[in-house]
Amino acid sequence: MRINFKYLRPHSLNECLAVLATHGDESAILAGGTDLMISFRSGSRTPRFVLDISRLSEIRSVEQHAEVIKIGAILTYSELIAHPLIVKTFPALSAAMSCVGSLQIRNVGTLGGNIANSSPAADSIPPMMIHDAQVMIQKVNSVRIEKLERLIVAPYSNTLEPDELITGIILKPVETAYKQSYRRIARRKSLSIARVNMAVSAKLDAEGLIEDVRISVGSVAPTPLRIKKVEDSLIGLKPESKFIKETGELVARHIVDLVGVRHSTEYKRPAIAGLVIKCLEDVFID
């Protein structure tokens, strides 16, 4: 690689935060390295220090709290997909994590890295958004908790400061009455970036009408996003097949309105509509 740096492996979270406090702006945080190593190779990042956080035990566990589940930032996709509580509680997220790259990538890649990299096509982000994900961010002597939707502001760009570390992700489980789906369209199944990806979570009331529905879409706008306006307009409706088809069109139109017509619109518009239909069928029609 056309780069040189000093490699540091802090032994504790506090030690790591202390290094970030003094050298954050000239450091690169290394978790799984699946994005970072590529940017070293291409020369797009040339830090003075590389801070290996992959062994920090403080941020490698799944914790169940009364209302939320907290996922340590450096747990790998493979560890999470093998975690019974995660698989049971977050089926859409688990499905999304199984789509990431290849087994070799999933064996080292992390959720913290996926968030910090802030790709519009990140697979894990839409399924975290349907759980109103919050990101726990620490620096020396302080913790801030930011909504995932607010943290990512533009393609590959977020509000993380150089002295800050993502330490965990806080997800709200939903009741068992919810059904979820995650789907993506990509050129092939493995090792390809999603062209459209989508997570849906929904619940019907006793009469079979929609009581709650959450739809999050990736790869179609500068950042992955929840489409709350459309979600709200669906409450109280009956999810029949005609409705599902119309909702597909509605979501596609809404997104085109939001991001404007681009060179990819002609392809993406029907792709979005088609994917919405499939996801809604997954959750509403068994």
């Binding site: 490699y7 390295g33 699946t34 590529i38 790259g101 070799q104 080292v108 090792l191």
Partner: peptide, 23 residues
């Protein structure tokens, strides 16, 4: 050299990883 072919696969602590993406 960028994680896409697997020709560099080694096993680290029992898991297959891309040797080109690990320091």
């Amino acid at each position: 050299g960028i994680g896409e072919c697997g020709a560099c696969t080694i096993v680290m602590d029992g898991k297959a990883v891309n040797g080109c993406l690990v320091l």
